[in-house]
C-alpha cells in the first residue's frame, strides 16, 4: 500500500523538485499596463486607440541547462489582447529552462495544405481568402492621424514565402534564480509595433492587407514586442 502511494506521489515530488512555470502574455504600452479603453501615443506622436489585436504563436521550444533545444508543444495559439484567457499558455515550462523560443505566425506547411481546423480555422478571420495565407498578426484601431474612413487604421500582416515571409522567431532568455513564481510574464510592449525596428506612421501607412514590403517592416517590429524581465 505504501509503495502504491509512493508511485502516485513520486511524479508530484519530482515535478516540485524540478519546478514548472506557466507562461502568459501581458499587454503593455512602454512599461505600463495597456488598457483597451485608453488612448496612447506612438513614437511619431500620433494618438491612437487599439480596438483589435490578435497574433498567432507556434513552435514553442526551450533550451535547458545542457543547451538542448526541446519542443514544448506542436500546437498553435491565437493570442487575443481582448480575451485574457487566450493570453495564458496551457503548457508547462520547466524551471531549468534558460531560454524560451516561439514563432509569431503560422509556418509555411499550414499555409499550403488546404483548410486547417481549431485555432487555424479560416472562419476565425485570421486568414486571407483572396490570396492564401494566414494573417500572422493584426492590429486595428482609430487615430485622428489616419486619413481614412472613420480614421481607422488596420494592419493585417502576413506572407509565408520568401522574400516576404512574415513569420518571426522570438528568443527570450529567462532570468536565472527566479524563485518560486509559477507564472512567467512575457511583457508585450505594443508601442514597439510602431517603432521596434522601423518607424511606422499611421498618417503615412494606415493599412496593410497583403504580404510585401510593408508587412515585412511591421513583422520586424512585432518581433521586438516581447521581453521577460526579472520579477521582484
Amino acid at each position: 500500500m505504501k509503495s502504491v502511494i509512493l508511485i502516485i506521489l513520486l511524479p508530484c515530488f519530482s515535478m516540485m523538485a524540478m519546478g514548472q512555470t506557466k507562461l502568459a502574455f501581458q499587454m503593455e504600452w512602454n512599461g505600463h499596463q495597456w488598457h483597451p479603453d485608453s488612448s496612447y501615443q506612438n513614437a511619431a506622436g500620433e494618438t491612437l486607440q487599439i480596438n483589435r489585436l490578435q497574433f498567432y504563436t507556434s513552435q514553442w521550444k526551450y533550451i535547458n541547462a545542457n543547451n538542448d533545444t526541446i519542443d514544448l508543444t506542436t500546437a498553435h495559439f491565437l493570442m487575443n489582447a481582448f480575451a485574457m484567457a487566450s493570453l495564458s499558455l496551457p503548457f508547462d515550462l520547466p524551471k531549468n529552462a534558460k531560454t524560451v523560443l516561439f514563432n509569431v505566425g503560422v509556418e509555411k506547411d499550414k499555409n499550403t495544405s488546404g483548410i486547417q481546423t481549431g485555432v487555424l480555422d479560416p472562419s476565425l478571420g485570421m486568414f486571407w481568402t483572396w490570396r492564401t495565407g494566414y494573417i500572422m498578426a493584426k492590429m486595428h484601431g482609430v487615430s485622428s492621424n489616419a486619413k481614412t474612413a472613420g480614421n481607422r487604421f488596420s494592419y493585417e500582416v502576413g506572407g509565408f514565402e520568401p522574400p516576404f515571409d512574415a513569420v518571426r522567431t522570438i528568443v527570450l532568455n529567462l532570468p536565472s534564480g527566479k524563485g518560486s513564481s509559477n507564472q512567467t510574464i512575457i511583457h508585450t510592449n505594443l508601442a514597439a509595433w510602431f517603432n521596434g525596428k522601423h518607424p511606422i506612421q499611421i498618417s503615412q501607412t494606415p493599412n496593410c492587407h497583403n504580404a510585401g514590403k510593408l508587412a515585412m517592416l511591421l513583422a520586424d517590429n512585432y518581433a521586438t514586442l516581447f521581453s521577460i524581465v526579472n520579477q521582484p
Partner: peptide
C-alpha cells in the same frame, strides 16, 4: 484565380464566399 493567389482547391470557395 487568374493570379494564382490561392494554392489549394479546398480553399478556393472561401474567396467568392467572402
Amino acid at each position: 484565380m487568374w493570379d494564382g493567389g490561392i494554392n489549394h482547391l479546398d480553399l478556393q470557395p472561401l474567396a467568392p464566399i467572402t
